[in-house]
Amino acid sequence: MNPFVYARPDALPEAVRLGATGRAAFLAGGTNLVDLMKENVARPAEVVDINRLALRDIVEIDGGGLRIGALVTNADTAYDERVRRRYPLLCSAILAGASPQLRNAATNGGNLNQRTRCYYFYDVQTPCNKREPGQGCGAIGGANRIHAILGASPQCIATHPSDMCVALAALEAVVRVTGPQGERTIPFEDYHRLPGNEPWKDNTLAPGELVTAIDLPPEGFAAHHTYLKLRDRLSYAFALVSVAVGMRVEEGRVADLRIALGGVAHKPWRRPQAEAAMRGQAPSRELFEAAAQGLLEGAMGQGDNDFKIPLARRAIVRALSQAAAGTPQSQTDKRIA
């Protein structure tokens, strides 16, 4: 790990001021940043420890919804009684990820800002456009079992590793940030980005901006939801493919629907057109297969990860069946219903 200047501000304005140097990293739970620093992937000159900031609350929002603080841990979020009852999809996705030790330390803001687990990004001996712009991509034509099948670019085929963010995408959460220019909100869809020609940018945060909270809208899809995660081990592994579904069923028809995919792209993957095509229809296997087709249109394998395309198609159909039936995937009993 490189030497750095360490600061632990007590208040948000000071944290933002300290973070505005362009060489600083904000430290929250540390579960990803400290690891990246050990690997010399992250080499901040200054580490601004934000753990003393008052961002640890989960509070009601006027008009419904919950505001979850950026420093609330993933575990405290998943086990919060209001989250469990009103946003079981979010609870399920969080508990599908990492391990209890990591969830006890990792924060919600940090979950959004974690970096890809692409092998080449992590290995400073190999080329990576995300780590060192212009070096090239080792994963294209290399070992790419875990890589993207949607929205990739000739510069980068990395995926975003979060489970939590897949649920937040389906819930259409809103990210609250504060930076040198003040406070603003970012719709979840616009928070993470596709790699394009700037794969080093994971998200749309401006330099020095800090996530302060995540707002959950009133609709939590508590009756009809699922988080289905498929991976190489039953626990403690990143998703090869995951599917978050939130559905509202009225009089036997799909009244509202959100589908987000994890493990397949540089950001949680949504195709609102595929969702719109299902509204007003009665749930059926044919309908689910058409939705899967729509979500995966244009999907392209890289060789090792070609299997993800049929896997994702089947996972989407299964997840839609689980949500429609009101039988969400258990994160303890991993048999797929």
Binding site: Y6, G30, Q101, L102, A105
Partner: peptide, 24 residues
């Protein structure tokens, strides 16, 4: 943070001690 051998209790809750900066 992948094996759990370094697990300790921090304020009563288990964490991976290899991923925490002590000064924090």
């Amino acid at each position: 943070g992948q094996c759990g051998a370094c697990t300790v209790l921090l304020d009563g809750r288990r964490i991976n001690s290899c991923l925490k900066l002590a000064v924090s």
